[in-house]
């Protein structure tokens, strides 16, 4: 594993994208930064601009308007970048599967590296998910 990849795993900056979620996953994601969970320990920071991001945390059930934006935004992330779907909505669209405004699931829009299920997943689960993903990438 090259030094650069090693560094990437030690300092993943996350950008958080909500695509029509109920806010719960978003709030729990933010919660990860706060004193009880403090992900800065692992070098995880919340990036303001998508061009600084290494990991995209996507939540929500991808409604029509945000799905469109999601595609353009994925283009704008500097590669290599990981995509993590947070919450059941990103995986199966949960209760919103029949909604007229949520036509396609997330992985039909952009490639997803990992899902963290739960409605909402607990902050611990989010951290565990991201750390597992990092481990997986680290092993190759």
């Amino acid at each position: 594993m090259s030094l650069k990849l090693k560094a990437l795993l030690k300092s993943p900056w996350v950008f958080h994208l909500s695509t029509g979620s109920c806010n719960n996953c978003d709030i729990e994601t933010l919660d990860c930064l706060t004193p009880r969970f403090d992900v800065e320990r692992f070098g995880i920071l919340l990036a303001g601009s998508i061009k600084h991001a290494d990991v995209l945390l996507v939540s929500g059930s991808c409604n029509r308007m945000s799905a469109e934006k999601l595609k353009t935004l994925y283009e704008q992330v500097p590669k290599p970048c990981l995509v993590v779907g947070i919450g059941t909505c990103t995986g199966s669209r949960g209760i919103f599967i029949d909604s007229y405004n949520c036509p396609v699931p997330l992985d039909k829009i952009i490639p997803v590296d990992a899902y963290i299920p739960g409605c909402p997943p607990k902050p611990e689960a989010i951290i565990a998910g991201v750390v597992k993903l990092i481990e997986k990438v680290g092993k190759g």
């Binding site: 199966s92 007229y100 036509p103």
Partner: peptide
């Protein structure tokens, strides 16, 4: 109202 979007996917599966 009925589904108008042919591209819509309504099946589950991750």
């Amino acid at each position: 109202y009925s589904e108008w979007d042919e591209t819509a996917i309504r099946t589950r599966g991750v």
